[in-house]
């Protein structure tokens, strides 16, 4: 297969950036999208052009590192996949593909397609944890039974990989899906409920400080989220935050 790629090149945070056009051939349909970029990069190195910088690590859809905005969609046209899980068979021979970084004020561009998502870490630091120290004397893991449906829902929320596709997709660059997934995970578990009030206040506060947009409930995040995190989590966070705001002093 052959493709024409329009790739965003930007030398650093200060650079203005521009689109560049490259041709790649020798692409086979069972290559992943990132392997296609590998082919491009080997070619660019041979042509004395700096290879395209992009984030990636696990290449199996779990680390959340890869982050490309492909043909106007976060992680491209596939559903339930990260960029590394997108395969070239989703495209037709001869297609032109536009590749951009995830864009948001809170995700400054480092170089080319690589962005800084440390804002997500800071949101977690604000309260995305249960305050227990390491200890060999905690209650037995089976001491508290947890209703299966709650445990399952908590798990579903906890599968967020922190990729930022929700932010990249959202017309407002809102981080509600990400933040609410963590809030929900803990809100659904007895272990997390102890600090639930403080948690939601702090995490929302941090989310706002980072400069993410507001939630218009368009639902785009849920569609593009590679892990299928549901916007029910956003509703749950709205509910938690409202009840806390109404009841704290």
């Amino acid at each position: 297969m052959k493709f024409t790629l329009n790739v965003w090149r930007q030398n650093g945070p200060q650079d203005k950036g521009r689109m560049e056009t490259y041709q790649v051939d020798q692409v086979s349909d069972d290559m992943s999208f990132l392997e296609m970029i590998d082919v491009l990069n080997e070619q660019l190195i041979h042509q004395n052009i700096d290879p395209v910088v992009f984030d990636h690590d696990c290449r199996e859809g779990i680390c959340g590192m890869c982050s490309m905005f492909i043909n106007g969609e976060a992680h491209g046209p596939g559903r339930g996949v990260t960029t590394c899980q997108l395969h070239m068979r989703e495209f037709s021979d001869g297609d032109t593909i536009t590749i951009e970084p995830f864009r948001a004020k809170a995700f400054p561009i480092i170089k080319d397609l690589m962005v800084d998502r440390s804002a997500f870490d800071r949101i977690i630091q604000a309260g995305g944890f249960v305050s227990v120290n390491t200890s060999g004397n905690l209650p037995d893991a089976n001491a508290t039974r947890i209703e299966k449906s709650h445990a399952d829902a908590a798990f579903d929320a906890a599968t967020c990989i922190g990729c930022g596709a929700c932010v990249a997709t959202c017309k407002n660059a809102s981080a509600m899906l990400f933040t609410s997934a963590k809030v929900s995970q803990f809100a659904l578990l007895p272990q997390g409920q102890v600090e639930a009030s403080e948690r939601v206040l702090h995490m929302v506060n941090q989310m706002d400080l980072e400069g993410f947009g507001n939630c218009t409930n368009t639902g785009a995040c849920e569609v593009e989220c590679p892990k299928g995190i549901s916007i029910e989590n956003i509703a749950r966070m709205n509910r938690e935050y409202l009840s806390v705001s109404l009841t704290t002093k």
Binding site: D140, R145, L189, Q191
Partner: peptide, 20 residues
């Protein structure tokens, strides 16, 4: 102890219908 620690941290391990 690892399992106790993780459950206390809110790690959502699989559970059966009895909640264990």
């Amino acid at each position: 102890s690892i399992i106790d620690q993780c459950v206390a941290q809110g790690v959502p391990f699989a559970r059966d219908y009895g909640g264990l």
